[in-house]
């Protein structure tokens, strides 16, 4: 039988009216999914944002995310939220030594900085450190 397990990183946006409800726990209780919260914050307007890695059966992942959408949560894949603006990067690599997951790496022998969104957990250290604002967070 084909193994249909995997992990997926998503950004969840909670509008003000759902930000205080216990919704996320249902991913585990109803859908048997494991999740790892990478980042969570509530804005001054009481909207919530959460970056999480979902682990488990892929079909269940889709069902779980559909459940969240029905509850009013906006779901987006993470990769769209941290991006590298190539023309603003001069490939110093200050971000490479800060990146905790290897999403940013120094290619050799070209010494060009490469970005792999699949490995990004949106910690935003690169956004903080980039001297030319080449790394952008849309979170």
């Amino acid at each position: 039988m084909m193994n249909n397990n995997g992990s997926k990183k998503v950004v969840l946006r909670f509008p003000q009216e759902v930000a205080d409800r216990p919704i996320v726990c249902e991913l585990a209780l109803r859908f048997g999914l494991r999740f790892n919260i990478l980042r969570a914050s509530i804005s001054p307007h009481r909207e919530g944002i959460m970056v999480m890695e979902l682990i488990g059966n892929r079909d269940k992942q889709e069902e779980g995310l559909e459940f969240l959408r029905e509850k009013g949560v906006f779901v987006e894949p993470l990769s769209q939220d941290i991006r590298m603006v190539e023309e603003r990067c001069y490939h110093c690599g200050t971000c490479v030594g800060l990146c905790p997951t290897g999403a940013l790496s120094m290619e050799r022998p070209s010494f060009l900085v490469r970005y792999d969104p699949a490995k990004c957990i949106a910690c935003e250290l690169c956004v903080l450190a980039c001297p030319t604002h080449a790394m952008e967070a849309l979170l």
Partner: peptide, 13 residues
């Protein structure tokens, strides 16, 4: 310790 260069080796080249 991972290193964080501030100068660009590719552009120096």
């Amino acid at each position: 310790v991972p290193t964080s260069p501030m100068s660009s080796y590719s552009k120096a080249r």
